Simulated scan of single mutants.
Amino acid sequence: MSATDPTSTDLATGVTGKIIRFSWTDGPTKGAAHVHVFHEDGTVEWHSADQAATHDSGRAGVDRPAFADEAVASGVRLISYLSSSGFTLTVVLNSLTGRIAGIASNEKTWVPVHGFFELVPTPGP
């Protein structure tokens, strides 16, 4: 599925319970991809798309901050979280285009970020 295929980016019900791959086209992680797991308990974890993931909510040492998920307009969601390292990622996900636009920041830096996203199939039981 491509990032512009609406079936691979449909977020009408929000991100909770979904696994989403963010592929960055600029910013500090340009060229990288990260998989975000938005858990039912309102927390998020992420890892490089190159790393194997278990999506196991019981793993020790995994940063799982709370996330905000707000509908902005039809097919557009605002997502934000503050990691334990002090970095905040705030992004707008456009389901119609599969595009990401946002800001990565901490107490010293503020950097615009852009890219594409797609839903990752949820592993079976």
Rank of each mutant, 00 (worst) to 15 (best):
W24R: 13
V62P: 00
A71T: 15
T29G: 05
F87H: 00
A52K: 03
A3N: 07
V15I: 09
V35W: 02
W46P: 01
I19D: 02
G124C: 12
V72I: 09
I103Q: 11
N94H: 15
S85E: 05
F38W: 06
S83I: 00
R21P: 03
E70K: 06
V92T: 11
V15R: 11
A12H: 12
A52Q: 08
R59I: 06
T9S: 15
G58K: 13
H39T: 08
P121Y: 12
A66R: 05
M1Y: 06
I20D: 13
F67H: 03
V44H: 01
D26Y: 13
G86W: 00
E45C: 08
P6H: 12
V15E: 10
H47C: 02
T122E: 14
A32T: 06
G42K: 01
E107W: 01
A49T: 04
T43Y: 07
A104G: 03
G31W: 06
L93Y: 05
E40D: 15
D56G: 10
W46C: 00
A73G: 07
D50A: 15
V92G: 04
H55D: 11
V44T: 01
L119C: 11
G124Q: 09
T29E: 14
F117Q: 05
L96G: 15
F117C: 08
G115P: 03
G14M: 08
H47N: 09
L119F: 13
S74R: 06
W110E: 05
A3P: 03
G124V: 14
A71D: 12
E40L: 11
H39Q: 14
L93N: 05
A52C: 07
A60I: 04
F87I: 00
I19K: 06
A32W: 09
A66I: 04
D5P: 05
S74Y: 07
A33Y: 04
S84C: 07
V91G: 02
A73D: 14
R21K: 14
T7G: 12
G27A: 08
V37K: 01
D10G: 09
S2D: 13
H34A: 11
L93P: 01
P125W: 13
V111I: 07
A68T: 08
E70V: 12
A71K: 11
T4K: 05
R21N: 13
D50T: 10
V72R: 13
A52E: 09
D5K: 07
V120R: 10
H39D: 06
